[in-house]
Computed example of a mutant assay.
Amino acid sequence: MIKLSLHTKPRLLAATVAAMMAFPASAVETIKTVVIDGYPAKSMWVQEFSNFFIPEVDKRLAETGNYQMEWQESYGGTIVKPKGVLEGVKLGFGDIGIVTTIFHSSKLPSQSLSAATPFVSNDARVVAKAVDEIAREYPAMQEEFAKQKQVYLATGVVLNTYQLYSNKPVSSLDDLKGDKVAGAGMNLRYLEGVDGAAGVRGGLTDFYNMLQTGLVDHAMLWPEAAKTFKIAEVAPYMARVDFGSVNTKTVTVNQRYWSKLPDEVKTVLQDVAIEYRDHLAEIAMERAQESEEAYLAAGGQIIDLTDDAKKAWADSMPNLAQELATQLDKSGESGTEMVNAYLEKLMANGADPVRDWSVK
């Protein structure tokens, strides 16, 4: 849902000031840019957009002194809610957006590659690179964003693996019978083979209240988010299911805005977006262990599912990879080839799938 209030916070970083001092004022063109995300500034990927992406762009533009960016960052619902970034960028309420793609599986089906292949890899670095490479090797992903009047820059992974956070101990599928589980997008389908369990759609900012009020008994999220949003207070049990790492954040630019940018600025944005992708993945991996430790320190308990329990869960799921491949094939994209190429990239980097999702 889009809100038209433009509460933004302009910033001009030190690098741009240095550029103005080093070059005549008339030689520097200022480009205004509105960045949007519905999630709050404390969210890891939003923090790193402010602390990594923006300063890196400023630094590189300052090297030539031809251009400088005047950034207006609008997060936490000031312009759009978390589910509204895709539409917000499409309509021009933001020039650059961090789109949470799991909310838009019908409009961005190929972005579901990692979500449709759970229990394969817990390495955010490997998954991020593989998904982004597929986006550049096959036209589907970029064309999906083009239909939303956006230019694709890079796909990011902000979690090492989804786990299950609960108000009671869980060690097998039987422990979920009759329970409600919060999730977002494709991961709600992980419950389809679990007898008696029901998925409830929600977003990361909703999960605490959903658990606290008893609307749900469990929530699927990752350790860093559990720490940031203090999930141990309402869900003191974490089942180490290791659903796997999933891409959920994609940086895009409004098409009309993009068409007016100088080539130099376009190149810098594209290059930094890839570095931002890798930067986020590294942080996700670094914070995973310390976030679990923080969860324990906050009173949480961690229960390791056995290999047999993980396999039972994986085997209970519908063939999500086949469904995605078929959907993309029918739309004229190389769905089968994309899914298999993605899985090959993961296994070439050490992934050991609990279930073989290869499309025959």
Rank of each mutant, 00 (worst) to 15 (best):
S112Q: 14
L153V: 12
D195N: 13
K147I: 09
F49M: 03
S259P: 04
N66R: 15
T205E: 01
S171Q: 13
V131T: 07
K266I: 09
A22T: 08
L12P: 01
N247Y: 10
A341N: 07
T326R: 10
L153W: 14
L86A: 11
T33D: 04
R355G: 02
V151P: 02
V28E: 01
E192Y: 09
P318S: 06
M338S: 06
R240H: 12
L328V: 07
V158H: 00
I36N: 07
L328G: 08
A294M: 08
L343A: 00
Y152T: 04
K59P: 00
L61A: 06
T228F: 00
G76T: 03
A288M: 11
T306R: 08
D271T: 12
L221H: 04
K227F: 11
L188P: 05
A288D: 15
V99N: 05
G214Y: 03
A19D: 08
A14E: 15
D195G: 02
S171R: 13
A182F: 08
A140W: 11
Q150N: 12
M141C: 03
E56P: 00
A130I: 10
K330Q: 12
T64M: 05
V272N: 00
M238A: 14
A219Q: 04
D356V: 05
A281E: 05
F145I: 02
A116E: 00
L305T: 11
Q72R: 13
T16E: 13
L296E: 10
V359R: 01
N167K: 12
T155A: 12
S245N: 09
S166Y: 03
G214I: 02
T64S: 15
N187R: 15
T33M: 15
